[in-house]
Amino acid sequence: MPKAANGICACFGKTAGATRLGLRYGKPVQSQVQLKGRDLLTLKNFTGEEIQYMLWLSADLKFRIKQKGEYLPLLQGKSLGMIFEKRSTRTRLSTETGFALLGGHPSFLTTQDIHLGVNESLTDTARVLSSMTDAVLARVYKQSDLDILAKEATIPIVNGLSDLYHPIQILADYLTLQEHYGSLKGLTLSWIGDGNNILHSIMMSAAKFGMHLQAATPKGYEPDPNIVKLAEQYAKENGTRLSMTNDPLEAARGGNVLITDTWISMGQEDEKKKRLQAFQGYQVTMKTAKVAASDWTFLHCLPRKPEEVDDEVFYSPRSLVFPEAENRKWTIMAVMVSLLTDYSPVLQKPKF
C-alpha cells in the first residue's frame, strides 16, 4: 500500500560542541526536505540532502534535550512496534528510551511474540500492526521480509538491521564523525573487515557526503557485487574515491576513520572457525593506525571481540566507540520524529 512522501556528543562536554560546530538557536527552519510517512529500509533510497536533514535533526534533539534540558513530547500519543528477530543492546535500548523520551509508547516484540511469516503471513502482520501502531522498527534476518512489510503496511517501516543493510547504525556513525571533525566532506573512511550490512550501508551513503571509501575484505567475503556497482556509480557522480582490496594496510593508508565490525554475526556461529582463519591479519592495531592519517579515529558498532581490534586502539583517546553507541539514541529519535511529525529544527544547520 503506498505511503505519502513528505550533534553534540558527550566527548565535547557541556555546550562546547555546539560552539565548535556553530550550532545556535534560531527561528525554526522550514526545510524543503519532507520525510513524513516514508520508510527507512536502506539509505540507497535517500538523497544526501535527506540524510543530512536526519543528522541535523539528531543534533537538534541532542542539544535541546541533553544539553539544554528541554522536554519535547513530539511523539505524544504515538506508538511504535519493535520486532526483534535478533537480540540487541543498543538498538533496543536506544529505540525504547528515545521513543519514550519523546512522549511515545514503544512495544517490544520478540520471536516468542511474533514469528514473521510463520504463525501469520507477513501481509497480515503488516496490516494488523498498521491498525495498532504508528510505525514499526524491525530487526530481522532477511531484507526481503522488510520489503514485504513495507509494501503491505500503511505506516513507516524502519530497518533496525537486516542481512543486507543497517542504516540506523550508519546515521549514528556519521553524527559521531560530524561532531568530532566538524564536517564530513573530504573524510576518507577505511573499512577493514567483513563485506557485511554495515559496509553496504556506508557504500550507499558515504559518497553523498563527499566522503571517500577504502575497503579491505578477505577473499570470499567481499560486499554484494550489485551494491558495489551502485556505490561505484555514486562515487563517480559525487567525485569521490572508492577502492576495494584484500589488503588491510592498503585500505588503512591515509584514512581518517578506521572502521571494523564483528567478523561473526548472529546466525553465522557455525562458520566461526572458518571465518577466524579467513580474517587473520585483519585485526585493527596501532600498526594499522601508523599508516592512517595523523588525525585518525576509530569506530566499531559493538559488541566488539578482541580479535577484531586490540585494547590499545579500542580504548585509546582516538576511539569514538562509546559516543558512537550513545548517538544510536539521538539518531533513531530523529528518524522517528522525521517520519512521524512535521517538526523543524531550531538549531542552525551544521556544515556537512
Rank of each mutant, 00 (worst) to 15 (best):
V158I: 15
S144P: 09
Y53L: 05
S94P: 02
D124H: 02
L164T: 15
Y174M: 04
Q112G: 08
K142Y: 15
L80D: 01
G193V: 11
K62P: 00
L161R: 00
L116M: 13
I51Y: 10
D173P: 01
L116A: 09
S130A: 07
Y141E: 09
E179N: 13
Q169T: 06
S144C: 12
T110M: 10
D173F: 04
V128P: 05
D145M: 11
R90W: 10
L101N: 11
P167D: 02
I51D: 03
T123K: 12
S183E: 12
L122M: 03
A150G: 15
I170T: 12
F99M: 10
Y141Q: 14
P167E: 00
R90V: 01
P167W: 09
L149Q: 11
V118A: 12
L161Q: 02
G193Q: 07
L146N: 09
R90S: 01
I83Y: 12
T95E: 06
P167L: 03
D163G: 15
L149P: 13
Q52Y: 05
K142S: 12
D145F: 14
L80S: 07
L72D: 10
Q76A: 15
A172K: 01
G195A: 03
N196C: 07
T95A: 10
W56G: 02
D147S: 14
S162L: 12
E70M: 13
G182K: 02
T89Q: 12
I170M: 11
L149K: 06
L129S: 03
I83L: 14
T97H: 07
S130V: 03
A138K: 06
Q76D: 13
Q112L: 10
I168F: 09
E179A: 14
V118T: 11
H166A: 13
